[in-house]
Amino acid sequence: MTPVLPDDADVVIRIRGLDNGFGDQTVHEGLDLDVRRGEIIGVVGGSGTGKSVLMRSIIGLQTPRAGSISIFGEDVAHLDAAAAKDMRRRWGVLFQEGALFSSLTVAENIEVPMREFLSLPQELMDEFAGYKVAMVGLPVEAGPKFPSELSGGMKKRAGLARALALDPRLLFLDEPTAGLDPISAAAFDELIKVLKETLGLTVFLITHDLDTLHAICDRVAVLADKKVLAVGTIPELLTFDHPWVKEYFAGPRGRAATPKSKAA
């Protein structure tokens, strides 16, 4: 259950000795984590344990105080501008509220990364946007709509379509099911699982949602005490001896989310 995998493992994200903080406050101290290729890793932790900060430092929105982060085997701190831009094509990020550009329609939002990185004919980009919209389970009528005309769940799906615009190999999701009703949340879980299987994605998923963890995560990383305390499947974590982990998975909500077959 150690967060560090052997050196020969097929790893997409490798984090070693990460330190993060704001002012006097330390968020991470000596954090290690490995993410395998092709897995969905769920990151859980109490509020304020720095889940979002961890994601932001991996994708380069937050400069860590110390430590190294390598993605696809390249150290992201030491990339030049061109290489960093190239790296950004290889991942997609879904922010909590979708973070769609409000002045563009959903379809145009999906075309933004294509326009930025590739020179494709407009007609082809429109076709690509079309199947991406359908792929994330939005009706085609949503394509020409502006983000303000969409519901929260639809915004997240549209944000996911934009994250998938360039067919990335790595997908970051920040609380994808937060604020969705249980039916939409379950459908979103299913969608992520299907996309992961068809597109061969590696998914880094921050969530509070125990149902999501049970439904789609291959492994779960627990963030506590300023580092990744343990990584493993949920049955493995159930045996892990730490008060927060026990409370989280064996508490009333944790038990409620456990599928009956596994609990038996």
Binding site: T105, Y131, V140, G200
Partner: peptide
């Protein structure tokens, strides 16, 4: 992989407008 992806895009081949009329 190719078979799976082609099947996936085929099921999602629906004509879509990019801008409102």
């Amino acid at each position: 992989d190719a078979k799976r992806l082609i099947a996936e895009v085929a099921t999602n081949d629906k004509p879509m407008a990019v801008r409102p009329p």
